[in-house]
Nucleic acid binder design. Structure first.
Lengths: 140, 140
DNA sequence: CAGAATCCGTACCGATACTG
DNA sequence: CAGTATCGGTACGGATTCTG
């Protein structure tokens, strides 16, 4: 197996590089899955997907639910997830505006995957903390 | 469900905040799993775990295997994963030095989890790319 | 060979102010 | 209410140099 990760690679695969023959010599044929992973496993991406897994939310509801997220990052995260086809954005033409966010079928798959990973991570916390203590104790 | 994510929160849980009574008012009782996730789902963390899933590697082998990673980031990633108890570091006292990296039992669990996620992500690439094209097409 | 240390650009991210 | 625009600090990460 051979894996790679370069920003040029990402841009190439994303389709923004016009001429395929100018592709760098790195083996970018492997692991383009990072292009998806880095969005669904991003700091706020995980939390947004987890929240939407149980029900749909309005923008301000999400902002309250996910404590600590700024408007900017929430909007940015939602746009990225919408662009990737994970989140459906339903903007009702009313005043004041009302926008509901929900998971698409694909998004539900993603959410369940990362949720499973998060559950495992939560379960392994004791072991991880123990390992960190041991490591730090020795290194001092 | 309520999720949170603040750097202060992370520092608190990590055990670097001496006085627990100075804890911020955010609800940090939820989702500390991010403390583990951000390491195993990091850019190079995923690739390192994936590589070590099939066999153990030496430092320079890993560096070649994961094209695009700098020495600094590979060393840093390996140290983080070792500290969390996912990677075992076996430094042989020879000259020139030889260091073998392998997965611990816990690390194998982590690797299999992220690998499953990566496999799903790879499979969903066509749908994601299609969604991106549709989104970008409309937005132009 | 396996790293540690340093320098430094940049991209991320939060805070703030503004808009429809 | 649901964002966008702008600014600025910071931390991430790459390139280079040095060491046991």
């Amino acid at each position: 197996m051979s894996v790679s990760g370069t920003s040029e690679v990402n841009r190439f695969i994303a389709g923004h590089t016009p001429s395929p023959e100018t592709r760098p010599n790195v083996n970018l044929s492997d692991c383009p899955s990072r292009l998806v992973l880095e969005h669904v496993t991003s700091r706020w991406g995980v939390l947004v997907l987890a929240a939407l897994l149980e029900r749909s939310y309005r923008f301000s509801e999400l902002r309250r639910e996910i404590s600590g997220v700024s408007e900017k990052m929430l909007a940015q995260t939602l746009q990225t997830l919408e662009r990737d086809g994970f989140v459906h954005r339903d903007a009702k033409p009313v005043i004041p505006p009302r926008v509901d966010y929900s998971l698409t079928a694909l998004g539900r798959q993603a959410a369940e995957q990362v949720w499973a990973l998060a559950r495992w991570a939560e379960g392994s916390l004791p072991e991880v903390f123990a390992a960190r203590s041991a490591y730090d104790g020795v290194r001092v």
